[in-house]
Nucleic acid binder design. Structure first.
Lengths: 120, 120
DNA sequence: TTATATTGCAACCAGGAGGTTGCCTATGCA
DNA sequence: TGCATAGGCAACCTCCTGGTTGCAATATAA
């Protein structure tokens, strides 16, 4: 929980360690990519071939999805010998959570204002 | 996206009040749409014209974005006289939060397993 | 009733997303 | 050394997305 990505991520830090919320949501907005993310949150880092196994898609298709997730910061990968190991990085997800939390909070406040207005 | 139009429409329960997580994330994966959502979480329901004001985009473009958000369940809209009022619906966002929470939890558990494994 | 404002609908367009295939390089192993 | 495995690159295809414009329909206001 001691995360440093600014909780109010609306300021657009140029050196953003984490891409803007919309980019993270876009990366998560695909079943195939969500499946990859779930695989990597539940288990150890895996190679592209391993991630391709069990999928109907070609290795290249999976590679493209992995790159989308990488650009969003959700995954990191390092070349290890002849294979490329992909690992989950929790920071962008935490940023996305913070974003949704702020949305919910705004909504709750709007509801409160409406309620007290009606009660007058 | 593999499963685009519901060619296999038996994929999710008919009374799903909330579309699958990926659909919600996809809807939120666009700056313009995030801006619309923020506007409607902070304020009262607004018409399409009102939502278009202050944007560089045409009314039709905004309309299309609104429909994307509607399909994801994030917005609801009702015709009121000659204008269409759009309002925020918190359910899909809450579902998305729950999804991210479960991801985080899985990740934490994976870390714990790794830790206790290393310590042995 | 006649304007004016608010939408919806349809056509159209450019570009990007998702997917495949073929080929090449690099690494590990017998 | 030679071969199988892992992955990168590039070309190509199709369809969706995000945007525009023009026009018709409806509802309000004067």
């Amino acid at each position: 929980m001691p995360q440093r990505p600014s909780r109010t991520a609306a300021k657009r830090p140029v050196h953003a360690s984490v891409p803007p919320a919309a980019a993270v949501f876009a990366a998560l907005g695909d079943e195939t990519r969500l499946t990859l993310v779930r695989k990597l949150t539940t288990g150890p880092p895996r190679s592209i071939s391993q991630l391709t196994q069990g999928s109907k898609l070609s290795r290249q298709a999976i590679t493209k999805h992995i790159r989308v997730l990488q650009r969003a910061g959700v995954l990191r990968s390092i070349r290890q010998g002849r294979e490329t190991l992909c690992a989950f990085d929790p920071k962008p997800i935490q940023a996305a959570q913070a974003y949704l939390d702020s949305l919910s909070e705004q909504w709750d406040q709007a509801l409160s204002r409406l309620k007290s207005f009606v009660e007058d």
